[in-house]
Design a binder for these strands. Structure first.
Lengths: 198, 198, 198, 198
DNA sequence: TGCTAACCGAGACGGTACGTCGCGTCTTCTA
DNA sequence: TAGAAGACGCGACGTACCGTCTCGGTTAGCA
């Protein structure tokens, strides 16, 4: 029988070396140059070991980014939604900067050509963060900063759309000042809008 | 001087065969399987001919998409902004569907790993379409559908952000109904917003 | 240090398949059609594997010929020099026949355009066989068939010159009868000649 | 009808430029680097022009060598065969020196992989020179330097064999001193040998 | 002396093979 | 038995020449 590898015997040293090497190589050479062979060599690990524990180089990147990005892009709750969203959005922009060597951008790019990775990324990385965003929004609803009936899906699009729109087209990402203005507009719009019907 | 090939001698037959083959192969196998060799074979063209006229397979795709997408994603002007933007956004969504084999999606993905392609795409494909969008917006301003002072950059983000936001994360693209609701929200928001200061 | 591949890990199966395929293809199509790609395909081996172990297709041929030609062109010692040299020279002629598809002829041709291969061929293939020839000559000297003082370099030229002279110019190689007559002449000449002075 | 090119219209300028360029490139880069494209570029001639007048690059080389080698390797007749043959053999050795960039050596190498070129070379270049050699031999027979009955085919092998033997195996070609000694031996052998029977 | 057919340069074209790279699988050996 | 080392079959890469072909432009020989 084709037995799956036994996680209990897994070398934590090798695991960390792989994740670190992947991040380093991505930052150094850009993700176009990121290869399994380079990761293995840098990590002092055999290719077999990588393939034993990860299905693809995208999966390595996902795990590396997951561990590194736990703290980043967190939603703080100071009670001032505008301030908190500026912080949050600036954090997200920072994750994608510089574009050519950001491991997060690499992960997104890799997802475009590997549907199963896309699913993993969406479920493990994106959905939980959307949930955190919605939590923060509900907190803002409770404190009256935005209406109870505001559609959180719309809110998500409004806050984050500008970033990803530009990311896709390689336009300049918004700077802090622009982010601030957009946050104000979005909050104003959410206040003005009637509740969506879904 | 590094003598560039002479466009006057270029074979139009070969050019069209390459562009068509690239589009077909992309639709058939998805762009992960799209290779220069496959394009060359399908087109009945030598690899050398492709490399002579295009620097990369992304550049082939850009030219193919450019020629194919001239009509698509056009901005109509019926005088009703909401109707026109629904049409337009539905056209854009259609361009990215189905995601795994859409040549346009392929082009965006390819741009993420080839900065020079990203620049070409932005300048040749995106900027002109942004200009068309702004033209339509100014028409709406003249007819009073949206305020004179509305920030068109904000409008761009609000209209298109939702699409690209979901594209990046492989979330479901909005359907016609949702697009309609978003268009209404955005137009309402634009009416409510004070002019931006840039 | 530029790490060379580790011979201990080398696949003997692949090595033999490559050598056999090279010989077969040479015999079937002539060496003008002999390519690395064809060898790789016939052998069921990747091009990478060939390039890992041999610097050029000439080197493959050299190894193939070396292994195949160990027995051929051997010097027997029946005590009758004329008989033995006829046997030997006929063997050499056979190695170059038919000219268009003889792997040995291919090797010589390849040597003309690859100086480093020429060196390898000379040192690994030719010099040892010259040594064997000289051994046989010394045996003939001891038995008195040719004078003690005969110059073995001259003997070498006289015996083998006729073959290679014709090979170079694509003249007909000597047949058995002609070989016999030449051998007799050469032996007579060696008996008549005074010792050379080098 | 597929009409052959008309020699009357042929450009002598182009013809000479091609032959010169072939010789120069051969001397500069060795014949492994000699290509039709390089000849065409160097000569300021289109590839089409080369293919119109010559069937292969070997044929170009043959014509170039033929024109250049008319004078070289001529048989002088001072009345002293030993002296004349030393001159002649030294001339032949010079034609093949330096081995890696000698157009004559290139021509021989090219003949190994192109049987029709081999035939051309033999008939146009070699046979006439063998005839000249035999003429000189007959002159020597008339003057009594070698016996009337001497086999000129054997003489040919004996004189030239040493050179081609070494050429094939990339052994050092004989220097003047060695050539002299060999010539003396061969003449002595020819005197001693009974007439061959063909 | 003007016409016209050919050669001429230039170089794009469809091909074949090159030598390299990275993939994902595999085998061998060590700890 | 996990892990390192790395050879293996595979397939695409981008390049070099091949020999053929189409272009205008020149040029040589006939009208």
């Amino acid at each position: 029988m084709n037995s799956a590898p036994d996680p209990a015997r897994r070398s934590e040293r090798a695991r960390l070396a792989v994740l670190d090497s992947a991040m380093e190589l991505c930052r150094e050479n850009g993700f176009a140059q990121l290869t399994i062979e380079a990761i293995a060599e840098r990590a002092g690990v055999s290719k077999k070991t990588i393939y034993r524990w990860w299905p693809s180089k995208g999966a390595v990147l996902l795990e590396a980014v997951s561990e590194a990005a736990t703290a980043a892009a967190f939603h703080v709750d100071t009670g001032d939604l505008a301030v908190d969203m500026r912080t949050q959005l600036a954090g997200v922009v920072a994750l994608f900067t510089p574009r050519d060597s950001s491991p997060v951008a690499a992960l997104m790019s890799e997802s475009q050509r590997d549907p199963s990775l896309a699913t993993e990324v969406r479920e493990q990385l994106i959905r939980p963060r959307i949930a955190l965003f919605e939590e923060r929004m509900r907190s803002a609803q409770r404190s009256g900063e935005i209406p109870e009936g505001a559609d959180l899906g719309v809110a998500l699009d409004l806050f984050y759309g500008p970033i990803y729109h530009r990311l896709v087209f390689h336009l300049d990402l918004p700077d802090d000042e622009e982010l601030g203005a957009r946050v104000d507009h979005v909050i104003a719009a959410l206040r003005a809008m009637p509740a969506a019907n879904r």
